[in-house]
Design a protein around this nucleic acid. Structure first.
Length: 476
DNA sequence: CCTGGAGTTGTCCTA
DNA sequence: TTAGGACAACTCCAG
């Protein structure tokens, strides 16, 4: 039973912010009381339940949002539809507003929810709060979705779609109504073992942390972004991905904050390269929206015949950062310790798993899903498919990253490797990326004992490259 | 339907 | 030491 004065539920999901939040703004503008609600729905997410690192981040982010909302957020867990129906009954709410998510299981669930609520006379409204361009609008002129990034971005988005909305201000006078059920702690998002201590040092989840990160990037990282973003030890990447995933900041906010800086500082090229990365985020969501099977199924069907190997021991060594290739191991350890990996290193480590080790991209996808604080179904699936070569922008089969070349090129002074692989830090630059090439004397002087303090390479680069090329040519 | 151009991120060999 | 071309063929996209 809704009436015009009944409160509105703001159903927070992956939009954990007050600024530029279309659903929240619309609810506030209605003049009605607001009940903020968060539902941990592990019942509908199927194989894609949040991983451990994501849960830690979520806990911190919800805690920050709850502080901003006078501790008035109601927490619940379970099937979202049942929770909502019960909650509406007990709170007397007359409407539910939310910002859309684009994971297939959420689309299915949310359209069911919208239908049921509407049928019950409850106002149900959804908004676009997380993408620059709506996925069902950026289509080719024949009405089918884009499968190649560049035309998607240039033509489908920049040319033919309305420009990204200017950010909405944070509403003042949010008239909150409490209706307590569970507390944040009841969601059990925090890890049992305190592994998150190393992550706390790296990150500040929540809206104000996101804003700080954006400002830091715009003033310290954007200049030389085009080149500097390739160097994992440099401070040129935004590291906004987890903030964007949880919607602590909107892409629109990032977009519109970047524009004036790139103009004022005369760094248009760097700025455009950065904005393209936001475009990639939209592109991945677009792919997931139109091809909901990409988390598990090769976009290019011919890859279904690919001769992947099974090698649990090699997989474990990759996961733990014990492959014997320093740039790969540094990346995998950065991931484990911080919940994040620099983009360049994600490509190197990903290529190594899929091509040099010849292990199925699902293994990489699953591991990243569990360990990344920015784990995002669209980005994770689309990126792994890209690395494996079975995805949308088909990488040439011969594009196999050489971890040695990449390390020397992008971590020339070894700052990144030395930080995450300290047991070989004393090696001279010349051998840092290839300890197996170092003379015995150098190893000894650097305190490195191959296979004791640091492993020798798990595979030979040339042999594994040839093996991968043979596997790819078998698809023809 | 046909056509031409293009496709995030590379590596290796050769001159 | 360094720069340029080879490495397949295919699909996608726009006109």
């Amino acid at each position: 039973m809704s009436d015009k004065d009944a409160p509105i539920i703001i159903w927070f999901r992956q939009d954990l912010r007050l600024k530029d939040n279309p659903a929240l703004t619309a609810a506030v503008e209605s003049g009605r009381k607001i009940i903020p609600l968060y539902i941990l729905d592990d019942e509908n997410s199927g194989a894609w339940k949040m991983g451990g690192a994501s849960r830690w981040w979520l806990h911190e982010s919800l805690s920050a949002l709850n502080n901003d909302l006078d501790q008035k957020i109601c927490f619940a867990r379970g099937d979202a539809l049942s929770v909502l129906l019960n909650f509406i009954k007990s709170s007397g709410a007359g409407g539910v507003y939310w910002n859309r998510c684009y994971e297939p299981w959420r689309i299915t669930r949310d359209s069911e929810i919208k239908k049921t609520l509407t049928a019950n006379g409850v106002e149900a409204k959804s908004f676009n709060g997380s993408l620059l361009f709506e996925p069902h609008k950026a289509l080719k002129s024949d009405g089918t979705p884009y499968k190649v990034f560049t035309p998607f971005y240039k033509k489908g988005c920049l040319e033919n779609s309305p420009p990204p909305r200017t950010p909405l201000a944070e509403p003042d006078n949010i008239n909150l109504q409490a209706h307590s059920i569970l507390s944040l702690d009841d969601l059990n998002l925090m890890p049992q073992i305190p592994w998150h201590k190393t992550m706390e040092k790296e990150w500040e989840p929540g809206e104000s942390g996101a804003q700080k990160r954006l400002l830091h990037f715009l003033h310290n990282g954007l200049r030389d972004y085009k080149e500097g973003r390739n160097h994992p030890a440099a401070d040129n990447v935004s590291r906004l991905s987890p903030h964007l995933h949880y919607g602590e900041i909107s892409p629109n906010e990032v977009w519109h904050a970047t524009k004036p800086v790139m103009v004022a500082e005369h760094i248009e090229k760097d700025g455009e390269h950065f904005l393209r990365e936001l475009g990639w985020r939209d592109f991945s969501n677009n792919l997931l929206y139109h091809f909901p099977d990409i988390p598990r199924t090769n976009l290019q069907a011919k890859f279904n015949a690919f001769p992947w190997r099974e090698d649990p021991d090699a997989l474990k060594r990759w996961q733990k950062g014990q492959t014997g290739y320093p740039i790969v191991d540094a990346g995998m350890r950065e991931l484990w310790q911080t919940g994040y990996m620099h983009n360049r290193v994600r490509m190197i480590a990903g290529s190594f798993l899929v091509k040099n080790l010849l292990l199925h991209w699902h293994h990489g996808e699953d591991w990243f899903w569990d360990t990344l604080v920015d784990a995002d179904l669209a980005n994770n699936s689309a990126s792994w498919q890209w690395v494996a070569g079975c995805g949308a922008d088909a990488a040439p089969y011969f594009r196999i990253f050489n971890p040695l070349t990449q390390g020397k090129k992008f971590d020339a002074d070894g700052a990144y490797v030395r930080k995450y692989v300290p047991e070989i830090a004393a090696l001279p630059d010349k051998y840092l990326h290839a300890p197996w090439e170092a003379p015995d004397e150098t190893l000894f002087e650097s305190g490195v004992a191959l296979d004791q303090t640091y492993p020798s390479p798990i595979v030979d680069l040339k042999q594994s490259r040839d093996r991968a090329l043979a596997a790819f040519s078998s698809l023809k």
